[in-house]
Design a protein around this nucleic acid. Structure first.
Length: 731
DNA sequence: AGCACGCCGACT
DNA sequence: GTCGGCGTGCTC
């Protein structure tokens, strides 16, 4: 197989990347009768077990004790990993501060995929041979085999409606012969020549820019297109070009968006379904896709973030849809953002990458502003329908009476919508009945025993539930503090409580309350969504579950119950996330037929998020966000392994980075608390880590870091820490 | 004594 | 990530 290798390496020592959290490859001997080269996928002994790794680039580590060296046990028949993929693995490891072997593990996910798929036994006719006795069953089998094609036994007996023994009989009589079939016939390629949809002028221009980039090396595009602008149709044209060039395409979607709807759309455009890649695809099919991607049989993969690590042999385009979506972030094991790593893979291999969103993330917008990405704007809906007209309701002046949650102007609009035979969506991103329960006699508040969060009343289930850790208890009939019966009051609304309001106001309407805790799970939610789509519901009250997915043709009014929700929780992305969520949910109004309206109930109509939504001009909002983040010292692009923080930003900072080395009290300028060992423990298994220090202006950061280094580098800690102060490196 | 569990270091 | 060694502490 490797007869034409440029070098002979039997008996030599080669570096092998193994799936353990160590800094680099281990060294292994190559047995006399074996040939490997960089990228070869091998089985090697490691400690008491045997693991799968890959021969890596460079020289084997000469300093390792030769007595320790073990031999490679086996070379898998799968093609060696290509050079660009190897460089990508190294790059991701370096960026995420993870071990390269752990990144490689994401490439080599299933051992079965590394050997050729088992062939299955097929049956076909021997030309000219007839059975001596022809029964009806035998005739049906022979009719099916008339065209000379081979069938599997199970397929044939099923199709002919006979028992498998009929086929055995025919074989014994010398009428049929067996042959080996590939376990699965290769799928037909997606067809780029099928007629696409008619594009608007704006879409056409965007598509042309993308098409021109395919095959011309790396370039990153950001498609900023409003809901309904036809982003998908536009990037499908680039995909068609990649297909015409015989190149592969990867489409990344957030896990939640991987619905059959997208696959249907793909099939309508290209005639076949693409290969799918996510955790719910059965192992068998995943193995097949892995092999197909490596040997070029699979042309298009639609997948979740892990699809980025597939061993494509001729990847020519990557598309990241909903690029702002947090589902692209992996938090456990190797922490990475698949959106950014897709850009890196494109850069290394040399192909264009398309990021698409109706509400781009702040960092992607920064990258577009800086000229790193090419911005493509699609500000209009492809159908010609106008974007919904959004209205803000100032709850301080135009709010509802006490104990009600819907402002009179929203109620009036709902009435009009229902009279016109259309649907209303009321959006409130809070499950349950009420977020806080307290005793009106003694003021006792119900806290979670485990995590001190407030317990959310779920009246339907009759329980108080902690949305943080899942703890729940029945709703008591008297206060546990003062013992007063019937003294508990629910404060604030959840979707269930809005449902109560709506039932009072619109007793005739068919109302559906939809949240992720709906009994019946995903299946039930799917069914309810279909119900809405068919127009069998008048008013939908939902959490963020209803923000994306299905299209509802009759939905022309969206009311946001609490547009301020989520803005005060200390997340540095709070404003950005709220903007994205509300843009998405209000974008549902009149998406298909136009004429939609949206109402935002708010206590602060002047804040940038609300202003950006109402004006339909997000630019200013993004500018504010970018500026405020730079001011706070938070990089738009994060690659932090550790974070040291002080001052009022500490809560935000905690949710910003996972590895918080230390958190200082709010009133101290900046400090690192606890022993250095504790700080180091946070980054165990890492060999380098980056630290972001957020300090007040005028603070002596250099002096602080010097002192910290001195403390950490005490001999007893057995640590050598160096700090390279380079604020630019975070960008 | 016997073993369950958790911590820690080694793995080429 | 996974395994084995070793210490602690609890039970038959």
């Amino acid at each position: 197989m490797f007869g034409d290798l440029p070098f002979e390496n039997q008996g030599q020592i080669v570096p092998v990347l193994v799936p353990v959290a160590v800094a680099g490859p281990y060294s292994y001997k190559v047995p006399e009768d074996m040939q490997v080269r960089p990228g070869s996928i091998v089985r090697v002994p490691l400690g008491s077990r045997s693991v799968i790794g890959a021969v890596w680039d460079g020289e084997a580590d000469k300093s390792v004790n030769p007595k320790k060296l073990k031999s490679i046990q086996q070379v898998f028949s799968a093609d060696p990993l290509q050079e660009d993929l190897r460089r990508f693995v190294d790059w991701v490891a370096n960026w995420t501060l993870g071990a390269p072997g752990m990144v490689l593990r994401m490439v080599l996910r299933s051992e079965e995929a590394l050997e050729p798929e088992k062939q299955v036994l097929g049956f076909r006719r021997i030309p000219g041979k007839e059975p001596e006795r022809k029964t009806a069953a035998r005739q049906r089998v022979l009719d099916l085999l008339d065209d000379g094609m081979a069938w599997t036994k199970a397929g044939l007996s099923g199709a002919a409606g006979v028992s498998p023994s009929v086929i055995d009989g025919l074989k014994d009589h010398g009428v049929l012969e067996t042959t080996l079939l590939p376990a699965t016939p290769p799928l037909p390629d997606p067809d780029p020549t099928l007629p696409g949809p008619t594009l608007t002028d704006m879409q056409k221009e965007a598509a042309e820019r993308l098409v021109a980039a395919v095959g011309n090396g790396f370039k990153c595009f950001l498609i900023d297109g409003v809901t309904g602008s036809g982003k998908t149709e536009v990037y499908f044209e680039a995909l068609a070009e990649a297909l015409r060039r015989g190149q592969q395409t990867l489409i990344l979607l957030p896990e939640i968006a991987l619905t059959s709807q997208f696959l249907d759309r793909f099939e309508r455009r290209f005639g076949v379904r693409p290969a799918e890649w996510h955790s719910q695809v059965p192992a068998r099919r995943r193995e097949r896709t892995w092999r197909g991607v490596a040997n070029g049989e699979v042309k298009v993969v639609v997948g979740a973030r892990s699809a980025l690590f597939l061993p494509f042999c001729s990847l020519g385009l990557a598309i990241v849809d909903e690029e702002h979506d947090g589902a692209y972030k992996q938090d456990d094991r190797v922490p990475y953002n698949a959106r950014d790593m897709a850009v890196v893979r494109g850069h290394i291999t040399g192909f264009p990458v398309i990021l698409a969103s109706a509400t781009p993330s702040v960092e992607s917008r920064v990258n577009a502003q800086l000229g790193r990405y090419d911005l493509i704007s699609l500000p209009e809906r492809a159908s010609g329908a106008a974007m919904p007209e959004l209205v803000g309701i100032d709850m301080r002046t135009d709010g509802p009476e006490r104990g009600r949650w819907l402002a009179p102007s929203l109620v009036k609009a709902m009435q009009e919508t229902l009279t016109a035979g259309n649907q209303v969506l009321l959006f409130l991103n809070r499950r349950g009945y009420a977020p806080l329960t307290l005793c009106r006699t003694c003021g006792h508040r119900f806290h979670c025993e485990n995590c001190s969060a407030w317990l959310v009343e779920h009246r339907f289930r009759g329980r108080l539930v902690c949305h943080h850790c899942g703890y729940s208890q029945p709703i008591p009939d008297k206060c546990p503090e003062c013992g007063k019966p019937d003294s508990l009051v629910a404060c604030g609304p959840g979707v269930e409580r809005i449902g109560e309001d709506v039932a009072d106001l619109f007793p005739e309407a068919r109302v559906l309350v939809l949240s992720s805790d709906l009994p019946g799970g995903t299946e039930r939610i799917k069914r309810e969504m279909d119900l809405i789509e068919r127009g069998e519901v008048d008013i939908v009250i939902g959490t963020q579950l209803v923000a994306k997915g299905h299209n509802f043709p009759l939905m022309t009014l969206v009311g946001v119950i609490d547009a301020d929700l989520g803005l005060a929780n200390g997340d540095p992305r709070a404003a950005e996330k709220t903007f994205q969520l509300l843009a998405q949910v209000t974008g549902r109004a009149g998406r298909i037929n136009g004429g939609g309206k949206g109402f935002l109930q708010t206590y602060n109509p002047d804040q940038p998020v609300i202003q950006a939504l109402l004006s339909g001009n997000p630019e200013s909002f993004y500018d504010v966000e970018i500026e405020s983040r730079e001011h706070a010292g938070l990089p738009p692009f994060g690659r932090l392994a550790a974070l040291v923080v002080s001052g009022p930003d500490r809560v935000s900072a905690e949710s910003y980075a996972r590895h918080v080395v230390s958190v200082a009290p709010v009133d101290s300028p900046v400090s690192i608390l606890g022993p250095a060992e504790a700080a180091m423990a946070q980054v165990r298994g890492r060999f380098r880590f980056r630290i972001l220090v957020i300090a007040r202006r005028g603070f002596d950061l250099q002096g602080f870091l010097r002192a910290w280094l001195q403390r950490v580098n005490q001999p007893k800690n057995n640590i050598r820490l160096q700090v390279d102060i380079d604020p630019q490196s975070f960008m």
